[in-house]
Amino acid sequence: MAYSDKVLDHYENPRNVGSFAQDEEGVATGMVGAPACGDVMKLQIKVGKDGVIEDARFKTYGCGSAIASSSLVTEWVKGKTLDEALTIKNTQIAEELALPPVKIHCSVLAEDAIRAAVDDYKKKHGGQ
């Protein structure tokens, strides 16, 4: 299967790979996994006092499309409020990366990772 140029770009030059310290102020972590292919994705967001996502990191074990999807969302969530980040849809990710139908689940995983990270933040901060 041929990957699109954008997938290859994110795969070869992934943005924001790595981790924040779990206990760092404003940091929240979303962990998701896709049983069908065994992909595991960790997305961390660092939220400022104004409720805006300042920075993001990811670590993904999976195929090129899963890595590209998570790399892309680390770029997209930056500068967004939590609610704005939640409006990112897997269809937008799939469209941006020109994912073929069999790889749509990778974009779903990335969308779910954003939700998991935001949920984690809200849980840590008393549902604000």
Binding site: M31, G33, P35, K42, Y61, V108
Partner: peptide, 25 residues
């Protein structure tokens, strides 16, 4: 069984999976 749809495994389980994958790599 939600094999294609359920992405919300217990975080500890997924964290452990990630550690295993790191170790294998």
């Amino acid at each position: 069984a939600g094999i294609a749809t359920n992405t919300a495994m217990a975080p500890e389980f997924l964290m452990e999976q990630m550690e295993w994958r790191e170790a294998v790599e």
